[in-house]
Structure formats: structure tokens, C-alpha cells
Design a protein around this nucleic acid. Structure first.
Lengths: 191, 191
DNA sequence: AGGGGAAGTTACTGACCGGTCACACCCGCG
DNA sequence: CGCGGGTGTGACCGGTCAGTAACTTCCCCT
């Protein structure tokens, strides 16, 4: 069964986990495939047998995290069925209390300027679907201008995540939740 | 024999310019000192005589850009003396129409997770002073909650810049200016 | 004219990079 | 038993990295 134990799981999953951790700690370009394999308790050869290249490993890693976020949305939907406002608030709260290293997808886009990198498409698709999901909620919540609110929230959460990395958690991002909730309230209050 | 015509200026300035350009194009970790020196029409040795290390070059580069932004603020102050609202709007407009590769300072913070990197302090100081300047303007403009407005605008502009890199200029950042101006208006309208 | 500092040149170090190879191993399955 | 696929091992490739040394050449200033 799904033992969380160290190395009994499949190498592929361990590599993915280790890569995510190391990319976060040192940046994508900041760690080599050898160290990733070692951190995963395996070796470079096995890594290359599962992922054709480092670039592909990065892309798959990001796909994995995109899936995790999709699961979060599903959780919110299950927790507050037919209650888009609560879902929206839960999402804001989650975004406010998440890890200090920001959004790995956005970070990857910044760290990999090459438009042809396989990770770029993953990031773009993810961010777009993220905004669409948000816009759907804004519509269902009865916002005066749902598209506008969706973009506002998108910008705020993106800004909060990058601000936390550059000035720390005591900076502008400390007020993110209040600002975001005020934006929601203003948009549905004036309907 | 003057092959290197395009460069009459001092090597140090050329290196700084070339480094800025290349860091933007390929990322900081994405280009070596040798290529930077070559792009600057000089050589690695001269680069190392002016900047002790690549890390120091990065830091100096960012200090340079921080100075450029400070100059922008001075311009706004000169263009609209004693008119904080116009200054604020000019800053919003500038932030909306700036280059597509985002804020180099914030990008550096994301690309260099090591807290001890000399560039990190530069970024943190810059972002903090940036927010303070903004807060000062928000106060003078008579905003209901100046600190809140300053943080809102900080988050929005930071978000717009990173969003432009991950989803492109047609994404949420396209509505940045409208959102930001609405936030300003809401904050001074309700005074 | 000449002296000195700044700049250019070449070559080098040692480490590390992404990626590949050949080969030994282990373990479940028939 | 033997077979085969997934895994581990270590060596290896060519290239690039940051950083240094020793020497030459240029140009500005007195």
C-alpha cells in the first residue's frame, strides 16, 4: 500500500519529489541532475531512463504540481458545493498561507526565459486555466464585472507570491488576504 | 584599429549594460562572464578587475537599475510638483507599459534563492524603499487607508510583471492599469 | 618624451555540467 | 531453473563554468 516510507516507493516518484524540493531550494538552474538523483536515493542513469532530459524532468515536475493545484480546487468544490463565494474565499486563504518560495510554475517561467523550453507551455496552460477557473467562480458569485475581478485577484495573488520572495512575508504580501477579500466584497456589494 | 567602434565609453559601463541585457535575455545563471565580457566588447580579465566576482557584478547591475528607477521618481516629481495624484498615475502608467521581461530586481530574487547572495540585500532594500515611496504618495493623496492602498498597488504591479512573463501580455496584466486606477479612485473617493 | 595605470591577450586551473556507455545486479514470474 | 525488465555502478565524453596568472599594448597626463 501507499507507504510513505523512504525508498520503497518507485524511483520515478522519488525523483519527482526530490526534484521539486531541490528546484525550490536552489532554483532549477541551480542544481544538477546528479544531485537530484542522489537526493532521490537513486542515480543519474535511472533518472534518464524515466525522463529523457533535465528539461523534460522540469516540465513533468511542473505538470505534477499543476495536478496538485487542480486537486485543491476539487477539494474546495467538494467542501462548499454550490457555494462559489466560500470556494473563492477558501482559495484566497490558501494563497495567503502558502509556502514562502512562491509559485513554482511562475518561478520557472522567470528562470527559463527560453520560449522553446518544454516547461513554458506547461506554465502558460496552467496559468490560463487557473484564471479561467477563477473567472468562472467570479461569474457564479454574481460579481459586477467578473472578468475584472478575476484579473484583479490573479494579479494580487501573483504579486503576493513574488513579493514574499523579494521583501519577505512582512512586506505588502502580509495584507494580501485583506486586500483580496475587500476586492471581492466591493465587486459583489455593488451589484 | 578601432574594430570595436560602437564603444567609446568606459569598459565598466559597457560591461554593466551588456550584463543587464544578457541577464534579461538568458537569465542570470543562464550566461557566463565570458559571454558578458564579449558582448561588452571587452574581455573577462577587465571584467574581473572592475567587479570582483560575477555575484558582485550582478549586485552592481541591480544597484544601477535601482538608481534608474529612483531617477524616474524624480522625473515624476519634477513633472507634477505638489501633485501626488498625477505622480501616482504616471507611475501606474509607466508600470503598465514597461518591458515584457518584468522587474529585474524581483526576477533576481527568484532566480537566486541563496539568502546570502549580495544581490538579495539590494533587491530587498529597493523593494522596501519602493513601497515606502508609494505609501508616501498615497498618504499625500489623501487615501482613506494609505498603507493598504500602497500594498494593494505594490501587489498589483508585482503581479502584473510576473504575469506578463508567464502568460504573456494578453493575460491578466492587460487590465492592470484599469484595476490600479480603480483602486486609487476607490481609496480617495471614499475619503 | 616618457612614465604609469588601465586595458587587452592567451593560456591555464579545477570543478561541474548534461548526457551516454557497458556491465553487474536483483527479483518476480514462468 | 532460467529469463527479462527495472535498477544500480562507475567510468567516461565534450563542453562550459568562475576565476587567475603573466605578459603585452595602449593611452593619458605631467
Amino acid at each position: 500500500m501507499g507507504l510513505t516510507c523512504p525508498s520503497k516507493s518507485r524511483p520515478r516518484d522519488r525523483i519527482l519529489d526530490a526534484a521539486r524540493d531541490m528546484f525550490r531550494k536552489f532554483g532549477i538552474k541551480g542544481c544538477g541532475v546528479d544531485s537530484i538523483a542522489e537526493a532521490a536515493g537513486t542515480n543519474k542513469m535511472t533518472l534518464y531512463r524515466h525522463f529523457g532530459s533535465k528539461d523534460e524532468l522540469v516540465a513533468e515536475c511542473l505538470r505534477d504540481q499543476a495536478r496538485a493545484v487542480a486537486d485543491k480546487w476539487a477539494e474546495f468544490d467538494a467542501a462548499y458545493p454550490d457555494d462559489p463565494l466560500s470556494q473563492l474565499r477558501a482559495w484566497v486563504k490558501m494563497s495567503a498561507t502558502c509556502d514562502s518560495r512562491g509559485c513554482d510554475l511562475a518561478n520557472a517561467a522567470i528562470e527559463l526565459p527560453d520560449e522553446d523550453h518544454p516547461a513554458r507551455k506547461v506554465v502558460e496552460d496552467f496559468k490560463r486555466s487557473q484564471r479561467d477557473r477563477l473567472a468562472g467562480l467570479c461569474r457564479r458569485v454574481g460579481a459586477r464585472d467578473p472578468e475584472m475581478l478575476a484579473d484583479t485577484l490573479s494579479l494580487l495573488v501573483e504579486g503576493a507570491r513574488v513579493s514574499r520572495q523579494s521583501v519577505g512575508p512582512e512586506g505588502p504580501c502580509a495584507r494580501f488576504q485583506r486586500v483580496a477579500e475587500a476586492a471581492i466584497e466591493a465587486s459583489i456589494g455593488a451589484a
